[in-house]
């Protein structure tokens, strides 16, 4: 299967990610780029800090990619996630899906980011001017 999964401490190379999935069989490439937003619940965000349980996160992302291949006729899937300190505007996640037709590429890409956010063991801490909080930790 054509799967490329990485957790990286340095900035993600978006053009290289897109190039990796390009292939003559694919008529549709869907790219999801997650970026660091400057505000959460009306509070100004200074930066985010991402931490991963790397071995398990890689394994869970691989499972999501494999299950996408079983659900849809996709050709290539790339999932790259950052760790460390990210400033506003930086990119924590890039997902690129290539398929013969656009419908499948859109559907699979959405499934991958939605599932990643639910199960992959990666955490972000939001740092504000007056404090910090681990996102989603408390009900």
């Amino acid at each position: 299967m054509n799967i490329d999964i990485k957790i990286l401490p340095e900035p993600l190379n978006i053009p290289a990610c897109i190039n990796w999935v390009m292939s003559p069989e694919c008529g549709g490439i869907n790219v999801f780029i997650g970026t660091v937003r400057n505000v959460t619940k009306q509070k100004k965000v200074i930066r985010l800090e991402f931490e991963a349980y790397e071995s398990m996160a890689i394994s869970e992302m691989n499972k999501i990619a494999v299950s996408s291949f079983t659900k849809w006729p996709v050709q290539k899937i790339l999932i790259h996630h950052r760790t460390g300190v990210l400033e506003v505007g930086e990119v924590p996640v890039v997902i690129v899906v290539a398929a013969a037709h656009r419908d499948i590429a859109f559907t699979a890409c959405r499934y991958i980011i939605d599932t990643l956010k639910q199960i992959v063991p990666i955490w972000k801490k939001e740092v504000f001017e007056d404090g910090e909080v681990w996102v989603a930790a408390h009900p």
């Binding site: 997650g34 991402f50 991963a52 349980y53 398990m56 996160a57 996630h81 924590p92 996640v93 980011i113 990643l116 956010k117 639910q118 199960i119 992959v120 063991p121 990666i122 955490w123 972000k124 681990w134 996102v135 989603a136 930790a137």
Partner: peptide, 10 residues
């Protein structure tokens, strides 16, 4: 063994 609090990647 690891303790996994609610995840928040992406």
């Amino acid at each position: 063994i690891a303790v996994i609090p609610p995840v928040s990647g992406g």
